[in-house]
Simulated assay, not measured.
Amino acid sequence: MPVEMGMWRIDGDSPQRLPSGLLPSEAQLEDFLERDPSLLGEKLLVIARQLRTPHGKLIDLLALDGDGNLHVLELKRDRTPREVVAQILDYGSWVTELGREKIAEIAAEHLDTELEQAFAEVFDAPPPR
C-alpha cells in the first residue's frame, strides 16, 4: 500500500501545501543522502555506499550517528512492504555483529580520511569508545 505524505510551507500564519512531484530514482536519492544525510532529520556520517554484505546483497548507505550507532539507509521504490522488511531485517542483523575494527575498515574504503577525523569533522567530538 503506497504512503502519501504532504509537505507544507508555513509563511506567517498561513500553511501552504507544496505541490507533489515524482520521486527521483533510488540512485539520485542515494546521491542526495550521501552528500547531506541531515535530510533525514539527524546528523549522520555516511561511512559506506553500496556495501556488499556476506550474503551478496548491497546496503545502499551505512552511516554512524553522534553516539556511534550504525544506521542502515535502504531506499526502495515499487517494492512490497514484506520484501522491504525482510531485507532490512537481514541487514540489521548483520550490522549488529560488526565490531569497531570492521566498521573502521569499511569506513576506510569509503571515506577520503580516517574514520576518527571524519567523525570529529561531522560531530565536533571524537568517536565514542
Rank of each mutant, 00 (worst) to 15 (best):
G68M: 04
D65Q: 06
S93Y: 06
S93I: 12
V85S: 03
V85K: 05
Q50K: 13
I106P: 15
F32H: 08
D36A: 12
K43Q: 13
H71I: 08
L64N: 04
E97K: 15
V85R: 03
E74A: 11
R82P: 00
D78Q: 09
L33A: 01
P81R: 06
S38G: 12
P37H: 07
A63K: 13
D65F: 00
L73F: 01
E105T: 08
L51R: 09
R79C: 08
K43S: 09
G56I: 02
R79N: 09
I47L: 13
I103H: 10
W94S: 11
V46Q: 02
S38I: 05
I88T: 12
L98D: 03
L33N: 01
L61A: 06
N69I: 02
T96I: 12
P81T: 06
L64F: 00
P54I: 03
A63R: 06
L39F: 11
W94G: 06
E101N: 15
D65M: 04
E101G: 15
G68L: 03
E105I: 05
E97M: 14
K76E: 13
L39W: 06
L44C: 05
L58P: 01
S93K: 14
L62R: 13
I103Y: 05
R82T: 09
K76A: 10
S38Y: 06
L89F: 04
E83M: 07
I106M: 15
L61K: 08
L98W: 04
L98R: 15
V84I: 11
T80S: 11
L58Y: 12
P54G: 11
D67K: 12
D67G: 06
K76F: 02
H55L: 14
L73Q: 03
P37E: 03
R52N: 10
E105C: 14
D90Y: 08
R52Y: 05
D31W: 03
R49V: 02
L98Q: 08
V95I: 09
Q87P: 00
F32P: 02
L98A: 08
A63G: 07
G99L: 14
Q50E: 14
D36M: 14
L51F: 05
N69F: 04
L33E: 00
E74W: 03
R82F: 03
R82W: 02
R52Q: 09
R82A: 05
A104P: 11
I47H: 04
E97A: 15
K57G: 08
I106S: 13
E101W: 15
D60W: 04
L51N: 07
L44M: 07
G92E: 05
A48W: 00
H71A: 10
I59S: 03
A63C: 12
D31Y: 01
